[in-house]
Structure formats: C-alpha cells, structure tokens
C-alpha cells in the first residue's frame, strides 16, 4: 500500500480544533496533535510529518520509537519512559510534552483506523475539509495549491485569500 500523509489546505482551515478534539477523544484523552497560532489570526493544526529521518526516533534513549517499513513512526508503549527526549528533538515542535501515564504523545496516523481502511481521526472529523489523507505521490507531485504537510507549509503559489 502506498504511503500516505495528512496534509492541510490552508484555504479551508477555520481553526476550530475539531481535529485536536477527535485526536484527544480517540487516544484516551491524550493530545497527539498540537496547534500553532499565526499572527493572532489563524490557528492551524501541526500534524506530525512522519519525517524521512525522524529526529524523535534518533533521540529516544530506550528505542521506544521506531520508523516502520510503511514510513510511520510508532511508539512501543512498554519501552517509553516518558523522558520527553523526542519532544525536545522534534525540529517542528509538533509533539506536545503532556504525559498520559508514562507515555509521551506520538502520532501514528491512527493506525487502528487506517488498518481498517478508514482515515485518521483528524481527517475524518475535519469540518471544513482542510485536512486530507493523501498518498506521497500526491503530496510531492504536481502543484496542488497551498498545502501544509505536518508543520511545513509548501507554498508554490500565493494564498488565494484576499
């Protein structure tokens, strides 16, 4: 199966945090999706980018985090000691330091849902259609407008908003 990522279309995000609420509800009240404010105007979700060479994995002292063959960074709950090394290492600041029991939050793109053919919770619940779950070829292929992959804004054209 082709690798997929969550992308954000800036033209549609209204900053309502439905995605964060769905993530929190679906992961035993742990936020795995942070938000960032832009100039007091926009409030945008910062999804994990599932980096090609994830700094969080390298920083983990107990090898609790690993990147699977499907490109998804997963955390093994029994090995995580909640030291937050991954949180500090993340260059995009998308991991939050809130511990539930001893676990640091880590987005695995809702593998419980994806394995059943469903979209991650943040995408399924998105009220404005701003978050989409698309294949890597679509992300890095032709110009699809203003996309944000995880925390990085891919801006090939000016924002359409006036």
């Amino acid at each position: 199966m082709e690798e997929k990522r969550v992308i954000l279309d800036l033209n549609y995000c209204i900053g309502c945090q439905s995605c964060a609420a769905a993530c929190w509800q679906g992961h035993h009240q742990q936020s795995r999706l942070s938000h960032g404010e832009v100039s007091g105007l926009a409030f945008l979700p910062l999804n994990c980018r599932q980096c090609e060479e994830p700094a969080c994995v390298n920083a983990c002292p107990t090898d609790a985090l690993e990147k699977g063959e499907d490109g998804i960074v997963r955390r093994r709950a029994l090995l995580c000691v909640g030291c937050r090394s991954c949180v500090y290492a993340c260059p995009f600041g998308v991991m939050e330091g809130e511990l539930i029991q001893h676990l640091t939050p880590n987005c695995d793109l809702c593998q419980d849902r994806v394995s059943r053919g469903e979209e991650p919770r943040c995408v399924a619940t998105c009220v404005s259609g701003a978050l989409r779950f698309v294949s890597l070829s679509e992300v890095y292929g032709e110009d699809k407008g203003d996309l944000q992959v995880g925390a990085r804004v891919i801006s090939r054209s000016l924002l359409k908003r006036s």
């Binding site: 309502c16 945090q17 439905s18 964060a20 609420a21 769905a22 509800q25 679906g26 469903e118 399924a124 619940t125 998105c126 009220v127 404005s128 259609g129």
Partner: peptide, 25 residues
C-alpha cells in the same frame, strides 16, 4: 463504546465539530 464518523451522511459527510466529538462522553 467509541465514536465513528458517518461519511455517507448527506449533511456533514462524516465531519464533526469538537463538541460533536465529545458527545460520546
């Protein structure tokens, strides 16, 4: 029990706002 999204619904096409996500509570 857990909540899931009704993507076939003609009104919301599955999406739910943050309070809708809390309804199961």
């Amino acid at each position: 029990l857990h909540l899931n999204y009704e993507s076939g619904d003609k009104i919301n096409e599955g999406s739910l706002c943050s309070r809708g996500n809390s309804v199961i509570d």
